[in-house]
Amino acid sequence: MIAELVLATLFGLLLLGIHRKVIARIQRRPGPPVWQEILHAAKFSFKTTWVPATASRALFIGIVLVAIGIWTAAFFVMMTGGSLLVIFGIYMLHKIVEHAFGLSSGSPYGKFGGVRSVISAASEIPLFVSVAAIALFTRSLTLSDIIAWQQVHGPLLIIAFPAAIAMYLVLLSKMPFGPFSIVEAKELVSGYKTEHFGVWRAGLEVCNGLKTTVLLATFLLLFVGQLPIWWMVIGMVIITVSLSFTCAITPMLSPFDSVTIQSLFTGLMLVYAGIVFLGVAA
């Protein structure tokens, strides 16, 4: 399982590289090679590193450990078919991790990025909860139960299409250069990660790689079901490319608009959940 963990991290970084390449080609730029994000992580890990003089030292370093730790836990939960709620909890905790990354250094840019991450959490998290609407169909929130249910009744992508859209928006919110990536907007230099450089940034890259793999694989398991490993890989690449298209052709929203649009979708999801609930109850 340790080899899988390392491979998942590298594969996630490769997906982020593909994401950058596709965006660049759509915008008629050559773009970096697809393995650029892996090289990035390696490059940062070799650099001279220190902790900023104004930083809260224990938090500054500790949060990098927490960031990698929570996604390692999420990886195990996903691999063993554990509770979807745990993955959801870890996704939420990632918001706090971004918040802590931004606030721990004393930098004003990081601080704004961190505050934006908490504000967007207010709209993203209810969006993720709306995926719980699928529990009305499957009667369970355990991934293995949901996979088993799909083997009998067919993929949830068709049966609970609006829930898939909500989860897709969650994925989109987590992709860099997307319409909802307000936490790392260029007016904030690099947002919450401005002051985490060198080894700390390499640690963050490891977390990002793992996070990308876990979220995309969870999406596939949740809405398509268990697939052979090569089909999983192909499916994840296809989802990444579709996300890249969305990111390439949409501008980044202002923080206010980003929260409004996500809240709007949450409202629609609540209506959908209500309809499903009444349909199931009737």
Binding site: F46, K47, T48, T49, V51, P52, G110, T194
Partner: peptide
């Protein structure tokens, strides 16, 4: 990593 630097103020 390459080595430890002297701590500095944020950007």
């Amino acid at each position: 990593m390459a080595g430890e630097g002297k701590e500095d103020i944020p950007f």
